[in-house]
């Protein structure tokens, strides 16, 4: 398994990288490379040029600022995993990160790359939907912010222009009584999800669900927002009846395909079961006992 030949550039700044992308429309951006390089080895991807972002300094930050958790394009999964901030305040992100691939891959893989690759089997897209995150796209004319619901545009397709770089991911800082959880069914460590469910919610003072986001992994051509499930729970007490109802909506609304991980009926059921479990866990965490 040997990649085809390509030209290689490792610019030292984002403007340089964008200039290269602009003049080489067939170029591919390389960040962690843990998806792209295997595709190149199988020659399923044969980019004429690789623009490697790894030499750009200052892109590996994970910090809170202005009510957002901001994560730079080159922050590695393992850095999220090791971040006390993420572990303590963003349990959904923490859960998700730990379920990505395997520990060695996570030393190299990036959150931004996980989103920009827009593989419906990737774990972070659903989590970002649940968080109602946004991403910063940097291009020739500067930065623009894209809401996560507008970012994913189908299988391996995003709102990024060919000369734009996903430079930062922004996750809203949690309000009081927030909780989140990611439940992923995988056949073994390193596998993509048979199905995954990301839930982020907060409770009001009376214990009702005030706001909730639910994202679904690998049960559609892109990560899906379980909108009916969210609507069903918003403003309700998180009791079994409502959780079951919301989970049933997720089961009905997801669009899985049959593959080696299971048939359509199995995956739909899995979405229901995992949705229930993820909501229960998120509620428990919001109540401070997760």
């Amino acid at each position: 398994m040997i990649p085809a030949q390509f030209q290689y550039a490792a610019p030292a700044s984002i403007p340089d990288a964008i200039a290269l992308l602009k003049s080489n429309p067939d170029a591919k951006i390389l960040s962690g490379g843990q998806s792209l390089i295997p595709l190149m080895k199988f020659r399923l991807a044969q980019p004429a040029m690789i623009v490697d972002l790894n030499n750009i300094g200052g892109l590996d930050y994970i910090r809170e600022q202005g009510g957002w958790l901001k994560i730079g394009a080159l922050a590695r999964e393992s850095e999220l995993e090791d971040s006390a901030l993420v572990r303590e305040k963003y349990p959904l992100l923490y859960d998700t990160t730990l379920s990505v691939a395997d520990p060695i891959v996570r030393n190299r893989a990036t959150l931004a790359g996980n989103l920009a690759h827009a593989d419906p089997a990737n774990d972070h897209p659903a989590t970002m939907l649940a968080y109602r995150a946004q991403v910063v796209a940097t291009g020739t004319s500067g930065n623009r912010t894209i809401a996560i619901d507008d970012f994913f545009q189908g299988l391996f397709a995003t709102a990024l222009a060919s000369d734009e770089i996903l430079s930062e991911v922004q996750i809203p800082a949690p309000v009081a009584r927030s909780g989140g959880a990611y439940f992923k069914m995988e056949r073994k460590v390193g596998d993509f999800a048979t199905a995954g469910v990301a839930v982020q919610l907060n409770l009001d003072a009376s214990g009702k669900i005030e706001q909730i986001g639910i994202g679904l992994t690998n049960v559609g051509l892109q990560a899906l927002r379980a909108k009916r499930s969210e609507d069903a729970l918003r403003g309700e007490m998180p009791d079994a009846k409502w959780i079951e109802r919301a989970a049933m909506f997720a089961q009905e609304d997801c669009e899985p395909n049959a593959d080696l991980r299971g048939g359509v009926e199995y995956k739909r059921n899995l979405v229901r079961v995992l949705t229930m479990r993820a909501i229960e866990k998120a509620v428990a965490r919001a109540r401070g006992n997760g």
Binding site: D102, R187, K188, V189, G190, D191, F192, L260
Partner: peptide
């Protein structure tokens, strides 16, 4: 099942 992505060797966790 032509790669370790789908021919599933157990890891230490399984």
């Amino acid at each position: 099942t032509g790669s370790f992505s789908d021919y599933l060797l157990p890891t230490s966790v399984e």
